[in-house]
Nucleic acid binder design. Structure first.
Length: 278
DNA sequence: CATTCGTGGGA
DNA sequence: TTCCCAAGAAT
């Protein structure tokens, strides 16, 4: 959240929740989350299971564990205060260049380029005449170029960054941009070049039948069990939950092991039950 | 560097 | 109904 009465930590949690997740879905869960665990110390002291359950349907639940790890790092290495440098922020779990920049720019008016997927697409089209950025992560040159077009004042720079983000989200969109209604059409290098299609368009991400879907089934079953106060589920139940249409016969076991390795779930040798980590 | 990591509302 | 996607990070 970018309101004035929200803490740095609250903003950071909101930004991490918003990674690849629609804002509309984030907001209500973030509100409950902040009421329950207002500070990094609160989150660090909470159980991982409660954290994952509170993450609810935001998706990519590993981010929930990263928020907890991030909180712990802030408590241990920064005396409970969110550090306000790009360097220190990006060293925190779950915080990459985008999230760190967004916090510094939008909350503190610090002059740093904010390169999310929308901004990158807008700049590469308008300046280079290409449909999409060449790589999945911003290059050094991209960052420097973005920096160069920002106004001197940090607060103004943040406004420009936010405008670019929204422009990319609403007008200069990934697949069907509204070039007819675009107000900067006349100066756009991509328009001048005749809107050339990129060779390697972003590959559509399949979901049905994938390990991700199977993992999601397991995590949902365990979230529900934990929320209802059950002491986990039998391994049999967990593997059954991972059975999905389109999955191969080894998928349940493969996915189960991966979740154990990721620390998303734990197996108790004594109770013979699988549950969310403490 | 390309790939992996969920979810459910709306087109 | 089926498909598409939404403020990235870690590996």
């Amino acid at each position: 959240m970018r309101a004035a009465d929200v803490s740095d930590w609250g903003t950071l949690v909101f930004e991490i929740m918003s990674q690849q997740t629609p804002i509309a879905r984030v907001q209500p869960i973030w509100l409950e989350w902040m009421e329950r665990w207002p500070t990094p110390a609160d989150v660090a002291a909470a159980s991982s299971a409660d954290i994952i359950v509170a993450w609810a349907n935001l998706g990519y639940p590993s981010r929930a564990l990263r928020v907890k790890a991030c909180a712990a790092a802030i408590v241990e290495k920064h005396d409970g205060e969110v550090p306000l440098s790009l360097k220190e922020l990006t060293l925190l779990p779950g915080v990459g260049t985008y999230t760190a920049s967004a916090l510094l720019a939008f909350r503190h008016g610090i002059r740093v380029p904010v390169l999310d997927t929308n901004v990158r697409r807008v700049l590469v089209r308008f300046l280079d005449g290409r449909e999409f950025p060449p790589h999945t992560t911003p290059s050094k040159a991209e960052t420097m170029r973005a920096d160069a077009i920002l106004p001197e004042d940090g607060h103004h720079a943040a406004e420009v960054s936010l405008s670019l983000m929204e422009f990319g989200a609403l007008v200069c969109t990934q697949l069907n941009p509204s070039c007819d209604e675009c107000t900067i059409h006349d100066n756009c290098a991509w328009a001048a070049a005749g809107f050339p299609k990129d060779e390697k368009r972003p590959t559509p991400q399949p979901y049905a039948g994938t390990d991700r879907q199977a993992r999601g089934r397991i995590m949902k079953a365990l979230r529900t069990a934990h929320f209802e106060g059950t002491d986990g589920l039998t391994k049999r139940k967990v593997l059954d939950a991972a059975r999905i249409d389109g999955g191969d016969r080894y998928q349940p076991t493969r996915v189960y092991r991966a979740l154990l390795k990721d620390g998303m779930i734990v197996y108790n040798e004594d109770t013979k039950r699988v549950s969310l980590p403490r």
